[in-house]
């Protein structure tokens, strides 16, 4: 068995770090997972209370179903579902945290999703409570969950056209300076790729959402919002 510890050999330059607690006794869990889902799970990684695997987005639903229904695994509770954006040209990840009485530690499943065509199967048939998680991820990141019955925006208004949690949505240094002046959501043209999702089953947009003639931001004297924004 590989060393489950995160490598922490190099001393911190400040020399002030204390050792972490020992990693969880994850042996039984890792063996059970290798036995049942060996071909799907990649890249084992642990820290003191989490066991983490990566899976393919296309396989995520089946993996989660096995994790929930298998008697030895019994991850009956979906603790969290979150989306992570790794930037333009990279990928999205949908990260699930699961809980089981039978194993110490949280189980984290990171499902990879193509950023150019972000689709992944919904898990609302496994956990009804994933509905708001998925609506939030759709609203904030623009990930389409295929088979979700209610994939609407949940926080922003229905005619909002950006995905604020994406990496290429940059906050201005001071919203009061921006052309939006606080009464209108900031929109960035490069994140307007809603038209691409039209074919998604169960997701349709009203015609107004497809129009591409809306101005991005007021350009005054050659200065754009992006030139005022500070890249992170």
């Amino acid at each position: 068995m590989a060393d489950l510890r995160r490598s922490r050999t190099a001393a911190h330059p400040l020399g002030r770090r204390r050792p972490l607690t020992t990693p969880v006794a994850a042996g039984a869990l890792v063996r059970a997972l290798a036995e049942r889902l060996g071909s799907d799970l990649r890249d084992l990684w642990t820290d003191e209370d989490t066991v983490e695997y990566q899976v393919d987005g296309a396989r995520a639903h089946d993996v989660l179903r096995t994790l929930r229904d298998d008697d030895d695994l019994a991850f009956f509770m979906l603790a969290d579902a979150a989306a992570v954006d790794y930037g333009p040209g990279e990928r999205f990840e949908v990260v699930y945290h699961l809980f089981s009485w039978k194993h110490p530690g949280w189980l984290r499943i990171r499902a990879q999703v193509d950023r150019a065509d972000p689709r992944i199967a919904t898990i609302t048939d496994l956990w009804e409570g994933a509905m708001f998680h998925e609506r939030e991820m759709y609203d904030m990141m623009g990930i389409v969950f295929e088979g979700n019955r209610d994939l609407r925006r949940i926080y922003m208004s229905p005619d909002y056209r950006s995905f604020p949690q994406r990496r290429d949505f940059v906050l201005p240094d001071d919203a009061a300076d921006s052309s939006a002046a606080g009464v209108r959501p900031l929109e960035r043209p490069e994140t307007w790729d809603l038209t691409r999702f039209n074919q998604a089953p169960g997701v349709t947009f009203s015609p107004s959402a497809q129009r591409d003639d809306a101005p991005g931001e007021a350009v005054t004297g050659g200065e754009t919002l992006s030139s005022k924004s500070r890249p992170r």
């Binding site: 919203a175 009061a176 606080g182 009464v183």
Partner: peptide, 18 residues
């Protein structure tokens, strides 16, 4: 004035704007 949400994308920067 917007306070701690001064840079937020969805907050009105002071109610005296409306």
């Amino acid at each position: 004035s917007g306070g701690r949400f001064k840079r937020s994308y969805s907050v009105v920067q002071g109610v005296d704007r409306v």
